[in-house]
Amino acid sequence: MVTVLAVTMIAPFLYMVSTSFMDEFEVLRYPPALLPGRPLPGNYGAALTALPFGRFFLNSAIFAGFVVAGQVLTSAMAAYAFARLRFPGRDRVFLAVLSVLMVPVIVLLIPRFLIINALGWVDSYAGLISTEVVSVWGIFLLRQFFLTLPRDLEDAARLDGAGEWTIFRRVVLPLSKPALATLAVFAFVDQWKSFLWPLIATRSVEMQVVEVGIASFHGIYYTNWPYQMAAAVTAMVPLVVVFFVAQRYFIQGIQLTGLK
């Protein structure tokens, strides 16, 4: 059963890799070829130079990098407040924040665009990044983690003379490295494969991210499948690396929140 599931999950990926080495007419043959007759590694070079992919990768890296940093920072601070600080209406505010999880991402696209448009940030990094730096899921994840930290540690720090900010920075954050890493990994993957928002928030080719770049192999009349697949395989490499390096953080993220 597990094997069957695994095969169905992995088959499209293998086909993607296989297609990326094919001749562009071989792809369209019927019955379809599963393996390229003659592998064409040159597809990669050609695809990645047909469009400014260097620039796209840089854009993706800047976009994902800033969003990761922003989400970790804002989530940690908000989560600490929701987990530990005492203020009136805290749990109600938290529920309100949490309820945002129920709003489909797609519904927010237009309001987000209107905001960055009003700020004059369309087609800039600021526009791309700004509306992504707060993650409700991240706040939830870290809050759940902070709640598991022993309160005595914070009390001990309080008696030792630490203020709230020092406790957060010197005690809570260092102890939360696994949770912070989990959030960072999820945020990175999410942003790296994000397509719709970067498509809407940018206009010029120089501002495009990898995912949008890949999509531009789709012409109106014609699609160069091998090139597109070659670009897609290349775009996947960072994700695969992240996944293997940070596998345990994925599992932890799912265990902590029961989400994703």
Partner: peptide
Amino acid sequence: PAERDVAMVFQNYALYPHLTVHENIAFA
């Protein structure tokens, strides 16, 4: 608490797990 000049020893020790013994004692 910080301004009361009291120290407390907890049942489960409440040592900072990410700090060494030296750093734990020196923290205050």
